[in-house]
Amino acid sequence: MAFSKSSWGSVGVSLAIATLGLYAVVVGSGYRMGELTRMGPGFFPVIIGTAVIVLALAAAFESRGENEERMALRLAPIVWVGTAILAWLLLVQSLGLVVATFALVGLSALAKPPIRPVSILVLGGALSLSGYLVFIWGLGMPLTLWGR
């Protein structure tokens, strides 16, 4: 069984999904199974979990020789965009919409240098304002501009 060098990712993702299926089967079989006439909550999860395992192993087998060109993954954009979202969700309830939004815009800007301070400020302000108008003022969402 020859694994091509570029297939490790595909095989890896398949095996990760197989593990997810295994988890579903193990946890699912802990629920009441019931019988075909009256299925318990565990019945369907075990069937689907099994299907996931089987298909994932088949996918791993199928893609072992895969040799397709894939886009390159770069760490910096992923890390900065991820941090930006995390910052927003951690800050929005405590420090309010404005701080959270500026954090989001500022951190996500690091994903695509060069840094443009002016556009960060303008964009952060414009987004905070539109967020306020649409979601807080318009839809009555329980968020504050500056935190509580």
């Binding site: 965009v81 979202i85 929005v92 989001l104 987004l127 968020l143």
Partner: peptide, 16 residues
Amino acid sequence: HLLYPAMLFFICIGVY
């Protein structure tokens, strides 16, 4: 560089 931060913002606040 203007588009994606705006999209991220609307995604975050939309989901929230």
